[in-house]
Design a protein around this nucleic acid. Structure first.
Lengths: 214, 214
DNA sequence: CTATTGCAGAACCGACCAGTATCGAAACTG
DNA sequence: CAGTTTCGATACTGGTCGGTTCTGCAATAG
């Protein structure tokens, strides 16, 4: 939990003593993210975080009271953690929007955090929540937004349910990267778009043409 | 070389001393699987395995020389580790075959091992290989076999590439179970079949009928 | 100046774990 | 019977890690 009582800026420092060097926060969070990506949650030892950040352990524990809280913050406050649907330019077609999203996602290194965190979700509820927010909700909601945008345009039949469609992209890319351990390149993303998502989303409504059910 | 003609069953025991109780193997492997599913690879301590199996640690280490080897065997020799395409009855339709597969998969508890192993693949090559074999190759190959079967039937256009299609089912179910932490019920599997795989696989070839793309 | 707070580094503690050794008993061979 | 191997159980070793505390120095307030 974070006390967001005073989210506004503290001008200089109304207290005596040496003021906190706020730049240490980013150094520590970056080190934590790097270590989670490289060695997983277990390999992110507090000593390693402090060492890589060029900080002392006391400095780390003065700002985060436990390893778990640091990890949660490292996930939540990730550099490109919050990519919103408004950040994806409206290209006029679903296919174009998905290509634009792929372009933006290509620069995102956040997915590398996933493998090291999945096993810890079992026992750490806060971590599980942060993980779910960043790696499930954010991804699926993004896809759903683009699909809804296409529905507004008329590319997608209005009665079509896009919830399941919105899961396909995240599921395929995460499965390939995290589970299969294979790279996800632009060609793969293009195939997901052109061979799966766009055809399914924009297919004419069943019942209009012929009998499909079984 | 010695006589390697007796690779077959050793009738009783040609050696002196107390014979090994082969039933301990299964008890130990079961305990290892349970612990990986419940607490992950890190929580599968050798003490816990021995204790749950009702065995001594010496018994465990007499059969597996390290924790890693035990884990690899626990994955590989899983109860329902090897479900083959021939085990899925040929129902005459792709949709029926996928329903039959869903029925068989419903009794499989092996997927619960995945979360606890993903992070260890980074550092343990043998474990990574066993994991990939069981949770990627086996699943995707199964799907590809059923799709090829449907292609033989004529349900799927012969020129259609089924490789990407074969990844959709495994990716969606694993993403939902392992990453999103949501249950995968029969309805969800049916939706994957009816709304995604079957429509994509059996759609008429583009260019055959008329203009479909936009 | 003194008091206070933050800093990096390092020592320390208690818990946990992989792997080894040992023990007394059991099950087998000869 | 003796000898050998397995059994479950327990203790031990060496290492690692989360978390705490201490040291000596730097930066700020009054």
């Amino acid at each position: 939990m974070t006390t967001h009582a005073d989210d506004d800026v503290q001008p200089p420092a109304p207290r005596p003593g040496r003021p906190r060097d706020e730049s240490r926060d980013d150094a520590i969070l970056d080190a934590a993210r790097e270590l989670i990506a490289e060695r997983g949650f277990g390999g992110m030892t507090m000593d390693a975080v402090a060492s890589r950040a060029g900080a002392g352990k006391a400095t780390v524990y003065r700002r985060w009271s436990s390893k778990s809280e640091l990890a949660v913050d490292a996930i939540t406050r990730g550099t490109r953690a919050t990519l919103r649907a408004e950040d994806v330019p409206d290209t006029g077609t679903l296919r174009g929007d998905l290509a634009a999203l792929a372009e933006l996602r290509g620069r995102d290194k956040g997915d590398a955090l996933m493998p090291g965190l999945i096993s810890e979700m079992r026992t750490d509820a806060d971590l599980a929540h942060a993980f779910h927010e960043r790696f499930v909700t954010a991804k699926v909601d993004m896809m759903r937004s683009l699909l809804e945008r296409a529905k507004q345009r008329g590319e997608i039949p209005p009665e079509r349910d896009v919830d399941l469609l919105a899961e396909i992209g995240p599921a395929l890319t995460v499965y390939r990267k995290v589970v299969a351990g294979l790279p996800v390149g632009p060609e793969y993303l293009a195939r997901i778009t052109d061979e799966i998502v766009v055809p399914l989303a924009t297919a004419p409504a069943p019942g209009a043409t012929g009998s499909v059910s079984g």
